[in-house]
Amino acid sequence: MGRHLAGKVFGKCGKGAVWLVLVLMAVIVCFPVAFVVSGAFSAQWELEQNLGPVLGSAEGMARWSLLPLAPAFQSLVELLMDSPQFFVMFWNSVKISLSILAGQMIFGIPAAWGLARFSFPGKGIVQMIYLVLMLMPFQVLMLPEYIILNGMGLLDTHLAVILPAVFSTFPVFIMQRFFHGVPEAVLEAARIDGAGNFQIFCSIGVPLGLPGILSSGLLGFLESWNMIEQPQTFLKTKALWPLSLFLPEIGLEEAGMGFAASLMMLVPALLLFLCGQEYLEQGIAAAAVKE
């Protein structure tokens, strides 16, 4: 009884407290993003003033204000107007990411479907292989891939980055789990109706698995949008670089432009993310839940 009451009181107070804590945490978590945004809208001088100690040029501690003292478009303008390099890289990133996405969809979805809904000999092994491969850091395969790509003459082209990523097993993993959740009954019904496997796949599987596909797609996009190691290793020509390599080139001396660039890089990802948040949740959820 007391326990109940305590629990209830605790619950009520607790809920409020919990809520507060959560909000606080949320804020902390969002802090870096806010930082980037405010930084992008600060003038360089202010950034230097605030971040001087970090840049090494001043004494004392760095400071930061949520709202910049002198909001300015300087950095953004500098980035957007005066650095066509940024845009080159931006579109490179776009190209790469979309290509990877397309590829992953084209190849991955059927693979996930096959693994999820069918059984065949060696499936277990394949799944194991896929899993292991998924968990392998890139560096392991970096060299051999380099050699293969070089042999294919694909080095220093975008394909060198795209192709290996297309055949990443991660999307398959995610989608597999989702496809797993599709009720067999529906498929049976379709099969009875005389639909071929492919047909079933296309008309039922995909639509039903859309959340999974979308979330996998989003995750995949985010992943490729953030790719750093592969482009760095496989792309030598600066003109081919994706945006993710733009920022490392900027030191804190050009913090303003760095923040602006970060913001610019952030926005598409964020937008897409917001677009697909629901699906993401669903997809993740589906992945988590075992049928």
Partner: peptide
């Protein structure tokens, strides 16, 4: 809470 996931590593590095 999901936001950090969307933030590119490079952006966050600064």
């Amino acid at each position: 809470f999901l936001l950090p996931m969307a933030v590119p590593a490079a952006s966050v590095v600064l």
